[in-house]
Write a protein that binds this DNA or RNA. Structure first.
Lengths: 344, 344
DNA sequence: CTGAAAGCGCTTACAG
DNA sequence: CTGAAAGCGCTTACAG
């Protein structure tokens, strides 16, 4: 086998010359579009194989205008919630021949803008955004416009319950239903006094959970208090919040946490304080990430169907790409499922 | 401000026509390379700004041959070891203007081949590979050749201690030193009988740890047994292995786990069995991922400096890109650091 | 300092 | 079924 000269890539012209046909014929043979005689087709494909020929993607892109590349921006891929969605998404995306660029925006709003800008320059075919500014209660008009405008050029899909204010389609977990499942489960188990921790009134998802919790608790007759402390979302937040809660008796029967990281922290603080979970105090989480099942006392949580979530994100984005970003800005909700474990 | 017509992208020709200069001049003004009169430059940049003009990346790529894109293949981004390295890598990569395509190979050797193939087609500027076939003791010649050949076209960087057999540069944690740190720490603490679990003789990294453990234990005079059970690497593996170990008395003083997931499983099994950690039995992990510090009994582990690891991976790959893949196949080891926690 | 022209590698009507 | 030609949008010697 002759090796192509290193550095010089094989092109359709090389193949065309060697066989004595035109580049157009080679192109047809390789792409499988248009007529080519069987004889020529065979010769061309054989030589292409031999030279290990790959059509130059840029040239193809330049022609088609598509990159078959998608941008995916998360705050931090080390957060298993994002990692899980990404993993499932990538499966579907690569199934359709898309490659995905994964960006960590580090919860930095300026950086988000920069990254979106470069994704735009890169001319990806579509963009998925999770977290960051999407969840801010107070959000600069400019940060909204940026995404609205971007969506005119490149279809965007937002993992947010209020994707519509950005004029984009959205996919999000049904947090209200999640709270509902958890509180009704606790109610059935006979728990009466519940405290909700780990959120803040600066972030949409935690506000929605809070509102849902309040109205459901009222409906089923549970005594619910919301205690937002300084730290939010994290293991640390859960740990500190639980410490604060245990400063005053009587303790609540159960502590509902805004997510599983908070729950893991709360669980640890409870154990350190010498309490038994769930006998002395019960704990619930949200999202069903690794943190919830890895704990020695596994945590009851509202499970996200990540497979469905990732598929929905891809499907919606794909549809929007087909429609050149003209997909309406409706939000698809992913139904959670109650996962009962040892902590309740 | 006039909006460009939707769908029709602004090109240097549009700008050139409107101002009455040639496309070449516009190109020079925008790229900043070559001479342009101040007067023209100003007009051009102003109009570019107004139209929000972005040079078409494909056209540029077609010209330059570079994509400023890197491919990064891991078995599963939901494993925090990979997520941590990726996160740090991406930071440095985007600092240098590279975007990174993240691929999950799902520990499927065939899929790995496919993904590498498409990365090749995509003409990324460089490729990072973690896990998968790199760690197999028995590896098909074809799987080795694939990477060796790929590295001729696209510089590859392997996160493996034996990158050299693929003819590629490598970066890897110094597992031998990690075992050393852990065993000496245990020795100092007075532990005598240690069992190593969670690995298998089918995977290079666990074999290296095993060999290191055996020779170090002998050197410092500890009694070490290696117990590989059927399952490996995972929380489940740790849980089952610990169960097996607790079937027979006397228990070892301490169980060393091949990684933190295994350690988390082992810890949980020990707690379920009514043992106190570390009083009744001590446990250690490896890698310092979330699983090690999130447990209510935090796990002593060999900490990877992920920041340094990610930077080294990028630096080496970048250097290899500069040298057109002609970087020698030496492996850079990242020094671990002992992280002492509650489990010992 | 500027423009005409060639070239990067492919695709796709169009004419035959 | 095939080839000549134009075009995708940019860059870069080259001549002026």
């Amino acid at each position: 086998l002759e090796e192509p000269i290193k550095g010089k890539n094989i092109t359709i012209y090389d193949i065309a010359n060697e066989i004595g046909v035109s580049a157009a014929t080679v192109s047809r043979a390789i792409s499988g579009k248009g007529y080519v005689s069987e004889a020529n087709k065979e010769k061309i494909l054989a030589l292409a194989e031999q030279y290990n020929f790959r059509p130059n993607t840029f040239a193809q892109n330049l022609q088609s205008g598509f990159t078959k590349t998608i941008g995916f921006m998360v705050p931090h891929i080390g957060n298993m919630y994002f990692a899980n969605v990404y993993y499932e998404f990538e499966k579907w995306a690569s199934g359709e021949g898309y490659m995905t660029i994964l960006l960590n925006a580090k919860d930095n709003r300026e950086l988000e803008s920069k990254l979106l800008y470069s994704l735009n320059e890169k001319r990806v075919d579509g963009i998925v955004i999770m977290g960051g500014r999407l969840d801010d209660v107070k959000i600069k008009k400019q940060y909204i416009n940026e995404i609205t405008e971007l969506n005119q050029t490149i279809p965007c899909l937002l993992c947010s319950s209020r994707a519509d204010i950005f004029g984009c389609p959205g996919v999000h977990g049904d947090d209200k239903m999640g709270m509902d499942l958890i509180l009704r489960h606790l109610h059935e188990k006979g728990y009466k006094n519940v405290v909700l921790i780990g959120g803040s009134d600066h972030y949409i998802p935690t506000i929605l959970k809070k509102q849902a919790a309040i109205s459901i608790a009222e409906e089923i007759g549970m005594n619910l208090k919301v205690k937002w402390f300084k730290e939010v979302f994290s293991y640390e937040a859960g740990y500190r919040s639980m410490e604060k809660i245990l400063e005053q008796k009587p303790y609540p029967d159960v502590v509902c946490c805004i997510n599983d990281y908070v729950a893991a922290g709360a669980l640890t603080a409870a154990i350190k304080a010498g309490l038994r979970v769930p006998e002395d105090i019960a704990i619930t989480g949200h999202d069903n990430v690794e943190a919830s099942w890895i704990m020695p006392t596994q945590i009851t949580t509202a499970g996200v169907n990540y497979d469905k979530y990732g598929k929905m994100v891809f499907d919606q984005l794909f549809e929007s790409i087909q429609k050149h970003g003209k997909l309406d800005s409706k939000v698809s909700l992913i139904e959670p499922k109650l996962v009962v474990r040892e902590s309740t």
